[in-house]
């Protein structure tokens, strides 16, 4: 995608004289353009992450005395609560990703292929509306619906289906539903844009060659939509594993999400070394999962997420 634009460059200058002058100017402007990019990536992404790794390798041996060592990582693996939380976060994030794909794919397909031209745009916009509303408000809305004195419980009471109020919050199922809700749009948007580019004739051809609905879905539609599926899954998985608000608000104290452990180490215990180690472990863990996903699906980062 990027390379295609390269060939456009040389044709700006008309005469030979201009090319000489132009190439100096071009080098200068390239440097000038590279400056904000490199400052941003270097100062706000690379250096902080290198710093985080260095910090995580500092072992506290006495008050205000530190040594280089893997103590923080050893602590992590020695304490089952820590790595159990990480594994739990990972598994639940995978489940959320899978559910989001399962629920979102038919909706994306409907929007991209079945809806009429006018409803299509409208439905797509409807999908985006929750995107513009803060996580906090969405979780707040769910709390009002699901808590013991909430709308659903009151409604069931007044309709006589139950006698005592039911608490729907603070269960794993609620957390998973809340997370699926939060990340759904990041699944649907890439799916709609890939499916949109698909020629309907391909599907028709599948049917004409005698395929049934399921075969066409499996052999034609899904392979075509693969970059969108993988892209959506990566973003959704990373967002879920890194989310903080939804698990804590909808799961309460028992949600044991790994980001809560990081927050706890950093802010409550003021143990930055161990918090940095946890942060690095979360990043490494999620990156390995994403890498595995890319390998298994035969995609690359630049064919999915990095595609604009």
């Amino acid at each position: 995608m990027v390379d295609a634009a390269d060939s456009v460059l040389p044709c700006i200058c008309g005469t030979g004289e201009l090319i000489a002058v132009g190439s100096d100017i071009r080098k200068l402007s390239l440097l000038l353009l590279f400056l904000p990019f490199s400052l941003w990536i270097l100062l706000l992404i690379i250096l902080p992450h290198v710093g985080m790794v260095v910090l995580s390798l500092r072992e506290k041996v006495a008050p205000r005395v530190y040594e280089f060592g893997f103590g923080n990582y050893i602590d992590f693996f020695m304490e089952p609560i820590y790595w159990n939380t990480l594994i739990r976060t990972g598994l639940m994030s995978l489940l959320v990703t899978f559910l989001a794909l399962l629920i979102g794919f038919p909706v994306a397909y409907y929007i991209a292929k079945l809806a009429g031209n006018r409803t299509k745009g409208m439905l797509f916009m409807l999908c985006l509306i929750p995107l513009w509303v803060s996580d906090l408000i969405r979780a707040f809305g769910w709390i009002l619906l699901l808590r013991e004195s909430g709308i659903i419980s009151s409604f069931l009471m007044s309709s006589g289906l139950i006698d005592t109020p039911i608490e729907f919050l603070y269960t794993d199922a609620t957390v998973i539903m809340g997370l699926v809700y939060t990340v759904m749009l990041f699944m649907i948007v890439p799916l709609v844009s890939t499916l949109d580019g698909m020629d309907n004739a391909m599907i028709e051809a599948g049917y004409n060659l005698g395929g049934n609905g399921f075969t066409v879905l499996r052999r034609i539609i899904i392979p075509y939509a693969m970059p969108g599926i993988v892209s959506g899954c990566i973003v959704v998985f990373m967002m879920t594993a890194g989310s903080y608000l939804t698990p804590i608000l909808m799961g309460g104290k028992n949600s044991s999400w790994f980001t809560e452990q990081i927050y706890d180490q950093f802010i409550s215990r003021y143990n930055w070394e161990s918090g940095a180690a946890f942060g690095f472990l979360l990043l490494a863990f999620t990156s390995v999962v994403v890498w595995l996903g890319l390998k298994l699906s035969g995609q690359t980062l630049s064919s999915t997420v990095a595609k604009s």
């Binding site: 990373m238 989310s243 990081i262 979360l282």
Partner: peptide, 10 residues
């Protein structure tokens, strides 16, 4: 794709 929490702490 970097979790926001990690951007924050780093």
């Amino acid at each position: 794709v970097i979790p926001g929490v990690i951007l924050g702490i780093s």
